[in-house]
Design a protein around this nucleic acid. Structure first.
Length: 935
DNA sequence: AAATTCACG
DNA sequence: GACGTACGTGAATTTC
């Protein structure tokens, strides 16, 4: 039926986005076999299109058809109301790369495919429906979206493709209680939580329909609101008039858009077999390709059966331009900036990097921002670069020319950086997200190339940008030293000439984007998508919150302790010199060794290549039985450690603005999945010695609040009992018995009633030894017993718990075969050294035995931390610190018990539902004015 | 920059 | 038969 659209024509409009989401959620997460690209939604989409075509060749076949898509996340409705669709979920990670492919699919089927920047598909459909109606044709909208129901009538109807149910005027009336022409009035009153349309509070569809039917229209209703009998309802409508009117404008579809195409362009066309089959075979849809080839009566193209196992990553870089810092753009006006924002919105992703005056993300200033959207296409936005290398004699320190005002840049970037539909890609994004947060921008959603590498490559190499660029892009980025210098003459980034800064900063964003494009498809193949998306990436906002909250530290308490330590140390030092018969540097192990072993002639040997005497605590403890000097040294060292590392250093870390101490956690530091804390390290605050424990008294809660500490009891032993499947251990944990006493009783045949602390202590050492990959030598040294005796203990332990031995052997066998081990949650830890010769193999074996246990415990507390913000959202509480098996919170006094209850529930259930442990996880809790009391 | 020591889980 | 060894971290200090 060629010619102009008119009477007798029948237009089908397919709601493309609805098709995609339905396909995505209905299907399991399929991936393309050759490269692991997620492809499930495209597959579902194509099947739905094919089914649509098959079902529409009868007498009522359409003459015109189009699939209409949404484009961009910012529409004219956002200009009216910035909260529009603000609470929608971010697009699922696996879906994003499939979006462009669905456009390709539509075109491959030779169906018109239309979208328009800044408009929703609904508006395009509304305009097309009006045009078709006015031309005298019929329209069927294939969608179940209630927002489209306002279009029904006058030859326009809807078809719910899921239920195959026709929605006509009656159907609309059934849903809204009014006819199609009054649907927007009802929606304006009832609002919509999905799209975040406010409406009138307390009024739903039922009430709205009642009111509209009574008054005839929304305008009439609002004008005569005084006549409403119910006082509450009357007041609501009068009070929220503006909001209701806004809501109407939000739900009202635009029927009068200017479209760059006409109805005639949408005429039904037969698919071109080669193009369609080419697309389907590229997607590697075997079944569908065959079915359609049969139907079109042509031969199905062959689809290579490549297997991902062991396959090398596809060479995907050749079409990337070489990294060339001279090509990067310096952004210095708002038009240029807007072009970059548009690029981000177009693609739905952007690489972002910040430059600052320092590495302390809680105390540095934002100097500039770099962006990258495609390999080679990057820019730098300088913000507060100085005009000169130093300020002049009079303290003048002007900003360099050609920089936009910082606030203007942040205001312009903020909507994009916070847009759930635009993915922000970074290398170590926690740093940048914290910087932005301090400037009022909450970056989300994010991807992090450092964490992607960590998920895939833990144990193989580091995950810093230089390492990754070198390994995966064969590129050495400009060293920061080239710009800042080093040592005393080192400058801050704001003193780097803008010209140089552009090259360095934009290159970082470019490298980050290339790494992302490299890693993204590899995650699936490495089978670590769940680890990355569930255990690494979600931790970024959680840790960001914790680090920014910081912990309150009482400077006076620390200061007084420092003074007391200094006094004691001075006394000890005098005593030590007296005993030694000469003065020397007590802090020098070398001088100490010479005095102890050469001058005084005590027993002891040299160590290592350096030839220095070992003077570690264990050796001094042995010597202490014969002499006073080593004992004094030990006392002095303890005080020295406490003073320099804790009571002195911690004071330096109190932030000037917040008055609190803000550590930084490295997510990708420890190979096992544990976090590491630095600047300062708050995961090694003393607790084992009485003297040291007092330092925890300086960690305090704010006024009216308390610190709460919850820690997993014996989590690693419980995991061992589960993983190695040891019935006796599992039973002991289930019954809440003393696990070390039980082990001792089993091993040494001592009834529990007769258990002595010493026997229990030995069993405890063995239990821990097992987790560390026990050896006779190590246990002997730990227990200070002869090596043969230690070996005897181990033999008896393995005899009594043969499952442990099996577990250890199996783990080493797995590591040897695969060069990696895994946690219960699928975290991969590579063990390349397992094949090494010599002592290194021993290290690697013990590490391989320990990693699944330590790593599983790390996974569990990570899961708890990710879930914690939601679990405690209603409480006046903040999570502050993590110490491997312990979480520390600050909470208002009255809510402490509620917090403990909520947090304990999360922690004890953190393994579920992915893993059902055979042993319970038990969490102990405490609270108090300071950390010493809470622990 | 490496080695030594020691704080934590 | 000898080798060297508990697992995982970070920070301060001395020494080269």
């Amino acid at each position: 039926m060629a010619g102009k659209f008119g009477k007798g024509c029948h237009l089908h409009l397919i709601d493309g986005s609805a098709y995609i989401f339905r396909a995505f959620h209905a299907l399991p997460p399929l991936t393309r076999k050759s490269d692991g690209l997620p492809i499930g939604a495209v597959s579902g989409f194509c099947n739905m299109l094919q089914r649509y075509i098959d079902g529409n060749n009868g007498s009522d076949a359409p003459t015109h058809v189009a699939v209409i898509f949404d484009k961009g996340s910012h529409t004219f409705r956002n200009d009216m109301y910035d909260q529009y669709k603000a609470n929608r979920e971010a697009m699922p990670e696996d879906l994003r790369p499939q979006i462009p492919l669905t456009r390709e699919a539509t075109k491959a089927f030779n169906i018109a495919c239309e979208e328009l920047e800044g408009f929703e598909a609904d508006d395009i459909m509304a305009t097309l429906a009006r045009q078709a109606r006015e031309a005298g044709g019929r329209v069927t909208i294939l969608s179940s979206d209630k927002d489209l129901m306002q279009l029904v009538g006058g030859g326009v109807e809807m078809l719910d493709p899921m239920k195959n149910k026709l929605i006509d005027r009656d159907g609309v009336h059934e849903k809204f209680g009014v006819g199609p022409e009054r649907v927007v009035d009802v929606q304006a009153l009832a609002g919509d939580s999905v799209d975040n349309v406010p409406g009138a509070p307390g009024i739903g569809i039922k009430t709205a329909a009642l009111l509209i039917n009574e008054f005839g229209s929304l305008e009439e209703l609002l004008d005569r609101a005084e006549e409403i009998k119910q006082p509450k309802r009357r007041q609501t409508l009068i009070e929220h008039r503006a909001q209701i009117e806004l809501s109407k404008r939000l739900v009202q579809l635009d029927e009068h858009m200017e479209l760059p195409f006409t109805l005639d362009d949408l005429e039904v066309r037969e698919p071109v077999p080669e193009e369609l089959l080419d697309f389907l075979s590229r997607m590697e849809f075997r079944t569908l390709t065959k079915r359609i080839a049969d139907k079109l009566d042509v031969e199905a193209p062959a689809i290579p059966d490549t297997t991902p196992e062991g396959a090398n990553p596809p060479e995907q870089a050749p079409d990337w331009p070489a990294i060339d810092p001279s090509k990067y753009e310096c952004v210095s006006d708002s038009a240029a900036l807007q072009r970059w924002i548009d690029k981000a919105n177009d693609r739905g992703w952007i690489a972002v990097d910040t430059e600052t005056t320092g590495l302390n993300d809680m105390a540095c200033d934002l100097v500039g921002i770099s962006l990258c959207v495609e390999p080679g296409e990057a820019c730098y936005i300088p913000l507060i670069h100085r005009a000169t290398a130093t300020d002049d004699l009079f303290g003048n320190d002007d900003l360099a020319e050609g920089q936009m005002p910082l606030n203007a840049v942040l205001d312009a970037l903020k909507p994009m950086l916070e847009d759930p539909a635009v993915l922000k890609i970074g290398q170590n994004m926690k740093f940048d997200a914290k910087i932005f947060s301090r400037y009022g921008v909450e970056v989300a959603p994010i991807d992090d190339t450092m964490l992607m590498s960590y998920a895939m490559n833990a144990g193989l190499h580091g995950h810093g940008m230089d390492t990754l660029a070198e390994r995966y892009l064969s590129h050495t980025p400009i060293p920061i030293k080239d710009l800042l210098g080093s040592g005393k003459k080192q400058i801050t980034f704001d003193r780097v000439p803008i010209e140089d800064a552009v090259k360095y900063a934009a290159e970082d964003a470019d490298v980050t984007l290339r790494l992302w494009k490299t890693f993204k498809p590899q995650l699936h193949r490495a089978r670590v998508t769940r680890v990355y998306e569930g255990l690494e990436r979600p931790l970024v906002p959680v840790l960001k919150q914790m680090e920014m909250a910081g912990v309150k530290v009482d400077r006076d308490v620390l200061s007084r302790m420092s003074n007391a330590f200094a006094q004691k140390m001075a006394g000890l030092e005098a005593e030590i010199h007296e005993l030694a018969g000469e003065t020397f540097n007590v802090g020098s192990p070398k001088q100490l060794g010479e005095i102890l072993f050469d001058k005084m002639g005590l027993e002891g040997g040299k160590k290592g290549k350096t030839g220095a005497y070992a003077t570690g605590a264990d050796i001094l403890e042995d010597l202490a039985t014969e002499h006073d000097l080593p004992a004094r040294i030990l006392d002095w060292r303890q005080l020295s450690k406490l003073k320099s590392t804790y009571t002195d250093a911690l004071q330096e870390h109190i932030n000037k603005d917040t008055g609190r101490v803000h550590t930084s956690y490295s997510i990708a530091g420890a190979n096992t999945g544990r976090l590491a804390s630095n600047d300062p390290n708050l995961q090694n605050i003393p607790v084992r010695s009485e003297e040291g424990r007092r330092i925890r008294e300086a960690f305090i809660a704010d006024e009216g609040k308390v610190l709460v500490s919850l820690d997993y009891s014996q989590i690693e032993l419980r995991i061992l009992a589960h993983m190695a499947d040891i019935p006796a251990l599992k039973e002991a944990f289930r019954d809440g018995h003393d696990i070390h006493a039980m082990t001792a009783s089993e091993m040494f045949n001592v009834p529990m009633e007769d258990m002595t602390p010493d026997i229990r202590r030995q069993a405890k050492a063995i239990n821990f030894g097992v987790i560390y990959g026990i050896s006779g030598f190590g246990l002997a040294r730990n227990l200070r017993i002869p090596r043969v005796e230690a070996q005897g203990f181990i033999d008896r332990y393995f005899e009594r718990f043969p499952g442990i031995k099996t577990y250890m052997d199996d783990t080493i066998a797995f590591a040897t075969e695969h060069k990696r081990v895994e946690t219960l949650f699928g975290r991969v830890i590579h063990t390349p050294e397992i094949a090494a010769k010599g002592p290194r193999a021993g290290f690697a074996k013990r590490a391989a035995i320990n990693a699944p246990i330590q790593g599983t415990a790390a996974d569990i507390i990570r899961r708890a931390m990710v879930r914690m913000p939601d679990a405690i959202a209603g409480l006046p509480a903040k999570m502050l610190l993590q110490v491997h098996d312990e979480l520390i919170f600050e909470v208002e006094k009255d809510a402490a018990e509620d917090l403990i209850k909520a947090a304990r529930t999360v922690m004890e259930g953190a393994a579920e539902p992915v893993v059902k442990l055979d042993v319970p996880l038990i969490v102990d809790a405490g609270q108090g004015a300071n950390w010493a009391e809470a622990h």
